[in-house]
Structures are given as structure tokens and as C-alpha cells.
Amino acid sequence: MKYACLLGRTIREAFVKEYGTCSMSIYALLTQFGDRYLSALFTTYKLTAAAFALAVVIGVAVTVMRIAPVKPLRMAAEFYVQVFRNIPGAALLIFLVYALPYLDIVLSYYVCVLTAITLIPSAFCSEYLMAGMNTIDPGQIEAARSLGMTFAQLVRNVVLPQAVRSSVLQMTNLLVATMLTTALASQVPLNPTDLTGIVSYINTHAVGGVTAFLISAVLYCVTAVVIGQVGSLIDRKVRVLR
């Protein structure tokens, strides 16, 4: 974290020394585009939060289907996961934006972006939950049964809590990954734009250049590091010792 800031400053100083004329000072940039930056940051956060929340809901539902003793459901859920964990984000977004209208389905840009950045993490969410469940020793399920727990009770008391606890780190990574995926929003005209879109916006409207890039980069990076730290803090608290 400390190093990241330090490094950011060093890179910037190096650039300013070499190409001082090319980029605006942070001060000038922020007076001109400060409000836009704030709303860009807000857009990125909002997209991240919404997509992550939706992805977890869908991911849980898909996981339930994947472990259901109903074969067609399992197969459908497996298909869903394989499609969305393997499709490139850009391909999915382009499909939603440009191809769906040919099926008489026209979604707003915002909905397209939100859909793309929800579907992909939802597949990974399900993968992480499955991996989390596989850390549970089958003996514990037998023990729960021998104590008279019904299926619902043993899922509630034994399987779910352990699956959730042991996937905290991966869920944290998923949240960061979701945030990075929101950069897809820069590929469609959105107003306000996101943290990546603003860099190209400023570059077409002024000579913001490197400074604009650095501000966005630092904001992304700081957010990612903070999420990571909070995640490992939570993980240390709830990790299941074995």
C-alpha cells in the first residue's frame, strides 16, 4: 500500500521531468475535471457493488442447482457456469449491445454493462462456493445425520457456514475482479462514465494525459488493496481451522 503510493509518485515525477509539457498538473486537472472524477469513481463503485451483489445471488442459486439431485438442473447449471466463466467480457458485452437488438431485445447501455459484469462473476462465484464446499470433511455430514439432523438442518448448520467461511478470500478476489471488470463500462457511451472511461474522455477533451491515467490507476489500486486487506482480515477472523 505504502509502496504503491510511493511508486505512483516516482513514476509521475519521472514522467513530469521527462515530458512535463505533456500532462497537466494534478491540481489543474482536478479543478477542471474534479466533479467528473468523483462521479466516475461513484459509477465504478456503484457498478461494482450492484454487479457483485447480483453475482452472489445468482452464484448461490446456480450452486444450489449444481448440487441438486436433479440431473437436468445440474447439467443446465454446469452449462451456465462453463459459458460464463469462459466467455471474454468484451465478447459478451458486444453481443449484448450489438447482437441482441437483432433478436428484438434492446437493452440500455447501462443494463448491458451491468448484465455482462454480473453474469461472468456469478459463474466464478459458483465455482468458489463449490470449492468451499469441497473443503468440508464428509464425516461431518455423517455426524450431523447421526445427530438426527434433516437435510435442511445439516445444510444450514454444517455445509453452508463452512462453505461461506472458507471462500472468504476467493470472494474478496471476486469482488476485486468484479471491480476490474466494470472497466467494460468504458466501452459503451455512459454518462457519467466510469474510472476507465474518464481517461479516454479527458484525453479527447484536453491534454490530461498521464495525470488522468495515474489518478484513475491510483483510485483502482487503492480500492483493490483496501478490499484485499479487509478480506484477509475477515478471513483471519472466520477461517475454519483444520
Partner: peptide
């Protein structure tokens, strides 16, 4: 089952 207790070789405590 709840009326019959069971103790396993590998303990199987809820970790």
C-alpha cells in the same frame, strides 16, 4: 437417528 448416538473413528466434530 437422534435417539441413537454415534461416535466415529475420526471424531467428525464440526470444525
Amino acid at each position: 437417528r437422534s435417539e441413537i448416538g454415534m461416535v466415529f473413528q475420526s471424531f467428525n466434530l464440526f470444525e
